[in-house]
Amino acid sequence: MEKEFSAQLTRKLLRYLVPFAIIVILIAWIGVPMAYCFLWSAVDPDYPWSYPDPLPQKLSLFHWRYILENTNILGAVGSSFFIAGCTTILSFLLALPTSYALGRRQLKGAGFFKTLMLLPLVLPGMAMAIFLGRMLMKMGLSGTYTGVILAHTLMGVPYMMRILVVSFESVPQDLVDAASNLGATAFTRFAEVYFPMVLPGLVAGSIFTFINSMEEFNLTFIIGLPTVKTIPTVLFSYLGESFARTRASVVSLILLIPNLTLLLITERFIKTEYMGAALGKM
């Protein structure tokens, strides 16, 4: 009796302690680096934070002010958003008809085309960036917003198509037949059956494309510089070319805040299946 009770207690404890422990570890795993990033961004330059102090001596907003006042970070934020927005719209327009064809029409070789569309995600990013950059330079688009948007769209279209093809495939044929049986023309079928049914996929695909474009470094770095600067390229100038930890922390947070906010707001829309579609079978 006693033994049974204690066994039950252990099981109950395990049932709640293990997930609790995992959540704590996860928060430490993600939260501690974030917290450190905040701390570093707020170090006062007059009281440097060095070994073996676990925490900075004094906090100030000096570096935030410095970055906001002395560099054109707000311009970079603006162009990041502008490029991401244009990329999302362009990717959507290009991906929609092709996804419909791949998802609904029984085309010969659809499997081959579906593999083909994933190529941009698999080929080496730096090699693609450098030689796509050469190609765009030949077209006179190097260092222009148009060039950067075109290059980002090359990465955005596969993401968008992956999710949209799955969404189109999962619309039951009976619904489409029912609509045409009741008198719907091709246009109405698209507007009233396909579109509402693929809308969640469309939202998920747009979010992925947007965030992906906000994060894209290689292409912007090669094609956009010196004129087009986005948050990641500014960040790289503090991290890769020289190492300025405090300023890099400020810029990192400026980059993370919109991305993670967007993710948190829209998490409801991103079902795990879309996640799998976008990432799983690249």
Partner: peptide, 8 residues
């Protein structure tokens, strides 16, 4: 339809 095919 067998599946009813109601627009969800």
């Amino acid at each position: 339809f067998q599946s009813y095919a109601l627009f969800p």
